[in-house]
Structures are given as C-alpha cells and as structure tokens.
Amino acid sequence: MDWIFLIGLLASAVRFTTPVLYAALGETVTQRAGVLNVGIEGIMLVGAFLAVLGAVATGSPWGGLFIAIGAGAILGALHAFFCVILKVDQIVSGIGLIVLGLGLSGFGYRVTIGSSSQLTAVPTFERVDFGPLTGVPGLGPIVFDHHLLVYMALGLALALGWALKRSGLGLSIRAAGEAPEAADAAGVEVNRLRFLCTMFGGALAAMGGAYLSIAALSGFVENMVAGRGFIAIACVVFGRWNPLGVMAAVFFFGLAEALQIRLQTAAPDIPYQFFVMIPYALAILALVLVAGRAKAPSALRIPFITGRHARSRAHRHKEDTL
C-alpha cells in the first residue's frame, strides 16, 4: 500500500462519511430522546431530491439545502405525530416513511426535473478554498479539500457530543429517553422534547441526502441513498448512542466504502459484487458484535403517557396483552 493510495483512500473516506454522519447524528439525538426512526432512509431520499429541485429553483445550493432541511423536519414531525402523539408502533411508522420517501422523491423527480428533455444544470456547493493549504502533501487532500458541509458535520458531531453530555438541554433529552417519568416530575415536557428531537433527526437526515445530491454529485438519481440511512442506524448502535462514538463508527464505514471501491479495480479477478457487499456485511457484523452489550436508551420505543389518562391507557394495554 503506497503513500498516494493511502492519501486518496482517507480523503475519499471523509467524503463517504459525511452524508451518513448527518443522518446518524440526527438519529442519535432522536433515539436519545426515546424515539426510534427507522425511516431516515426515506427522509434522506426526499432531502436529496428537494435539494436539487430547490437549488435549481433558487439558483443557489444554499436554497436547496434549506428546502431539504425544512422538508426533513416536516417528515420528522410526521413520524413524531405517530410516535409521540398517537403513540402507535414506531417501527411501522418508520417503514411507512421509507416507502413514502421512495415514492415522493421518485414521483417528484419524474414530474419535475426528470421530465425535461434537456439536462438541467444544478447549482452545487464548491469545495472550500483553503489557498495553499490544499497543496500541502498528504494533509491537503485529506483535510483541506472538502465541501463546507464536511466541516459542518464534524463541528456538529463535536457540538452534539458536548451538548448531550454537558448542557441542560442535553440532560433533559437524555432523561426523556432514559427515565421519562423522572424527567416529567422534574418539569421536563417529555413529549414536546421528543417531538422536537424527532424533527431535528429528520432535518439532519435530509441534510445528509442533500450532501449526496448537491455536493458529492450534482443531480438526483432514484434510490441514490442506497441503504445509507440504515447503515446510519447501525452506526448509532455501533457508536453506542454517543455522538463522538457514532462519528468514529461512521468513519469506519466511510473507510470501508472507500476501500471496497478501490479493491474493485485492484483485484479484477474477484467479481466486484463481493466488494460492494462489504459495507452491508460489516453493518451486520457491527450489530452482532456490539448490540448485545450496548445499552440502548431505556425508554426507547416506549411512548410516554402522562397523568390519569395514562393509567387508564396503561390498564387497557395490560388487558390487551394478557
């Protein structure tokens, strides 16, 4: 393995990491508050599509990014409506989102940009200009040759790592997911917090999708997220619900993705499909290795019900169960 290969590998790993990192950080916050959203794949798809549409409509990638973030928050709110307000099964709602996102992005694309006969130019993000720093051997391509969204993801991971651990809001979020009754007694509005955290998770998932379509590439392709939303969820478990751990887990997957693409050309005798399988197989392996020992937020997937209403509802639930 030579030097140039290694630099290229690491630089490309950073680029593969970014979209999954946004989604995984959002999912971390959502899950820490007690809500599981398995539908972020669908939200990423909608984000990727709307980022392109918005960028074309407003003439700026920023316009596209903001529209994607808004749509992601709305889809997050839809999930929260089912999970936090109606308190129905979180997994089924997430599955609904996956299918809905597939439909909304595919349908939307085909009736807008996809229907025009000529190629639409999509305004995309430029890489940040670090001047001479980009030329520094080794460090330049790995650290100083990316889109702003890459550095923002890194900053977000650090900020969330700090905020969840040290800030009052972070404590409330963790309490909502670990001990909602205690949080409620301490004056935290558990359900409102869960709702907002689910919206936040949706917004970040859409941002990850937007990175794919208006930074990494310039354009939307149907089903372009290709399972990254699910890998993000595996990374949340693998990183043990801690933003910095999650970042490390996502980078590990980014590295695997960058490596498998290089191996395809390096080992032409082996059918390339086996290399494409690697990240998916690794996600399974990661879950097997970690999930048994990792401790999920105690109240994950358990709706929080307050007051007298709660007791009658819980009672009814018990009847159903027995």
């Binding site: 129905v88 099964d89 809905l100 597939l102 085909r110």
Partner: peptide, 21 residues
Amino acid sequence: PFPLVWIIQGIVILAFLYLSY
C-alpha cells in the same frame, strides 16, 4: 410516473397506523 405506487403504499401503511390508533 410509476413511483406514485410507492406513495400510495406509504400512505396505506400510515393510514393503517392511524386506524389502529
């Protein structure tokens, strides 16, 4: 476009959830 089918299926799943509520 064909993906309308996925929209309908997604809504079926979510509407089913609403019904169970």
